[in-house]
Design a protein around this nucleic acid. Sequence first.
DNA 1: CCAAATTTTTGCGTGCACGCAAGTTTGCGC
DNA 2: GCGCAAACTTGCGTGCACGCAAAAATTTGG
Lengths: 213, 213
Amino acid sequence: MTTDRPTLRERKKQATREALRAAALRLALERGPENVRVDDIAEAAGVSPRTYNNYFSSREEAIIAAVTAERASRVAAAVTTRPADVSLADAVIDAVIGQYTDPGDHARHALLMITTSPALRACYIDTVTAIEGPLTEAIAERCPGMDQLTVETLAASVSAATKVAIRQWLKSTSKAASLPGFVVTSGSLPDLTRSALMPLAPALDTAANRSRH
Amino acid sequence: MTTDRPTLRERKKQATREALRAAALRLALERGPENVRVDDIAEAAGVSPRTYNNYFSSREEAIIAAVTAERASRVAAAVTTRPADVSLADAVIDAVIGQYTDPGDHARHALLMITTSPALRACYIDTVTAIEGPLTEAIAERCPGMDQLTVETLAASVSAATKVAIRQWLKSTSKAASLPGFVVTSGSLPDLTRSALMPLAPALDTAANRSRH
DNA sequence: CCAAATTTTTGCGTGCACGCAAGTTTGCGC
DNA sequence: GCGCAAACTTGCGTGCACGCAAAAATTTGG
């Protein structure tokens, strides 16, 4: 019985996915990401190597997923949750910053590791793209009259700007002890994200107003 | 002598690159993209398979490069070429449309093939990202006072919006005979591109004005 | 509780990307 | 020309992603 819904099969799938995520992250932290083969992850999770690729399409993906799981949909949810009287720009910007403002403790170590490995950095940056789909829906829901192509453009732009911010942040944190201080490289991720998203505010607001007849 | 400039070594490199591009495109058109191994391309170009990957990091890249070569830098050049009295938004939008408006004839066949193969579609879409770097420089040059992060955000957004347009265009051209006509799916690539970029105009202009003290 | 239908897992084979360490070619000063 | 240093090419080995079809697990209908 078990109140039934998640249909057992579904639960097992999620369990496997979670097991792979966890195993990938643990092994990467223990031995360093370069010393983890996908066979190791699969074995640690108790599945065949082939199955790993049924869940994740690259070696890095599982590690990253352990840190970023669900973030994309939470961004979208945060957008739709904002009260209707705040501007689209504020809603979107705050939502993004909220979700990308660093979470707990165990993620710290992981984040540090990610900044260290080029392959992981690249994969981490790519996960930002995942917000594009959910964000498209969220904006569309918030602005019923808006042209579909405009919605997609805005979502893609927000995603792109967020990517810029994260790229910048990774650049400054990784090579912290670079040349003296030619570029000031702002500071915290939230600040960077806000700075990167601000220039899009006019586009967001103009489109939002235009969509209200 | 040969008036000297491109230092022989460089010329040979470009020749190899071009040979690979040409071979890749020719073979793909002849046999269909799925029936071309990278070994075939390498052999046709007269180099070792390993060398192929010194020039292109995926099998699809050479094929796509044969069609999109230089486009990114031409977009940037087009932006800097526009007279100084046209707005940043107009300069950028027209430049992008100009370069993505379809070129010659032989590209037609290639484009058709690209729309047919999922892997090629994906790779083609990814090449849009290549405009981001050059576009960043072009915008920075055009707007000397503008904040660097803002410049990058704008360039990334334009790139993202262009990607939306191309994605949409590929979607409509590939499944042309889909369901009746629930969505009208605009039409030509230039129109789509303009529609996708228009929403960014307020952001571009606001940033441009702000950068002029 | 059994079997048929659906979904997931697994093994296998192929093609591919890339690090590394020779081998080869080119650039350049003498 | 000569020879050295830098850049490019090549072969090899490893790890990886993924299509495919057989096997195992789960759901569904009786």
